[in-house]
Amino acid sequence: MSLRIVVTVKYVPDATGDRHFADDLTVDRDDVDGLLSELDEYAVEQALQIAENSDDDVEVTVLTVGPEDAKDALRKALSMGADKAIHVEDDDLHGTDAIGTSLVLAKAIEKAGFDLVVSGMASTDGTMGVLPALLAERLGVPQVTLLSEVSVEGGTVRGRRDGDAASEQLEASLPAVVSVTDQSGEARYPSFKGIMAAKKKPVESWDLSDLDIEAEEVGLEGAWTKVEDAVARPARTAGTIVKDEGEGGKQLAAFLAERKFV
């Protein structure tokens, strides 16, 4: 038996950098350093663990939809241990929204062939957390999402989802789409050997025509949502800062009383 795992990873602007919008109100991906979304490292890690714990022949493919530089994210995932990578890149993709991205990812996943898709819980730039559900809908397979624990055994995926009201044990048959949270376990660091090996691993490049997608279906024009305005939040007005010299708690209480919280 063989198991084909596709991990979706996103290349995002560094959250500790000065993230902002470009003139067309899309996320500026040129002026800010990018990297593999930290939350997708957890997805790569879980895919690798599933592969390591399996008696089957497992192949882990990492997939990204993004600009030229998104290759860096793929390299990082390959250096962690993924087997091969697919980069979907096309100028017409600029400005694609979540629904559009899900179309591109779903077509690419189908073309690659899959038994299991593993995604992160959310991208660190868009933070929508909807792509995995959208992929399940498009692919017509079960969604087993937001797992803090996941395992695959004999064609069944199981996991634990820690929700607001309850912690749930979930189960579905493969093929399926899984997403994992940052509670699923620390992601490994690429070893030197891993980094060297990654350089020789195959990275395929696909564009929209490879996926039979028309330019009008994606991009800023094809988006089903429009950002009309983006303004920097005004800096908070400088507050009062006191040094505790024995009365700090009382001073704080006085402030809270003045603001009518007590």
Binding site: T240, I241, V242, D244, G248, G249, K250, Q251, L252, R259
Partner: peptide, 16 residues
């Protein structure tokens, strides 16, 4: 912050 206290929370918080 609107109001900040530079201090040890083990002193400030119980007093608050």
């Amino acid at each position: 912050v609107d109001f900040g206290v530079v201090g040890d929370l083990f002193d400030v918080v119980p007093q608050l």
